[in-house]
Design a protein around this nucleic acid. Structure first.
Lengths: 121, 121
DNA sequence: AACAGGAATGAAAATGATTGTCATTATCAT
DNA sequence: ATGATAATGACAATCATTTTCATTCCTGTT
């Protein structure tokens, strides 16, 4: 059917593992890569199905994609300037596990993001 | 400036305290109330600013509004069958606030979801 | 009652992200 | 080289939401 364009994935990595489709598209253009917006969206859909990326929503409804997998951390994102701080989430891990166990869920994963306005904005 | 149309609020209440702008609009039409979509959106914005309603995002990005005062909760979603359980998130609230404060962030919001495989699947 | 000024309304157009369409192009085994 | 199949991207369509702007509704004042 459709496989993901590897450059989309590497761009997402370079972006800090966290970006919207439109941002990835603009980044690739700036880097001189010829790619269509459609392909960016399609690649992200594929990466989603392969569980290589996760999707979240920003406050304005724009979908943001992030690499999932290895070192699990969360993000503190400025709604205004977009700056991102990686944060630890040990408390969340515990919470997710206990809540899931309570309801008999297995193979647990979770997403958690904090949005706000940073001290510079 | 602009005050909220009281019928928008009562429709949201009748809808179970949980609906999108488009749904509220359609509900009001079915109930024979003459109102414009614009007014529905404007009223919801006002209710937001007055902290009478909260806004969340559905998976497809559509904004859903809910009366607040209902305790803020999160979701436990089955990856397989899609069944959803509402869960408490007091731990998350605290975590989000403390993490944000540590980094000097203001006007905090957060998202948190737990997903896995439910006992039936 | 008539009037003025501001707020509220809603139809229609604009916006912006995302998805669908479809003709073209690249890839690959034969 | 040939044909089959998958990938690509320009463009149009979709859908929620926002903006614009002319009109209507209030409300207090003469």
């Amino acid at each position: 059917m459709s496989r993901s364009n590897p450059k989309v994935l590497s761009t997402l990595e370079r972006a800090g593992g966290f970006a919207s489709a439109q941002e990835i598209y603009k980044l690739m253009q700036r880097n001189g890569q010829r790619i269509g917006l459609t392909t960016v969206y399609r690649s992200l859909q594929s990466l989603l199905k392969e569980n290589i990326v996760d999707v979240l929503r920003r406050d304005d409804g724009e979908a943001i994609y992030r690499l999932c997998g290895d070192s699990h951390h969360h993000h503190l994102v400025c709604k205004n300037c977009g700056s991102t701080v990686e944060i630890e989430g040990a408390a969340i891990e515990k919470w997710a596990k206990s809540v899931a166990a309570e309801h008999g869920f297995r193979d647990i994963g979770h997403t958690a993001e904090v949005f706000g306005t940073c001290s510079n904005c």
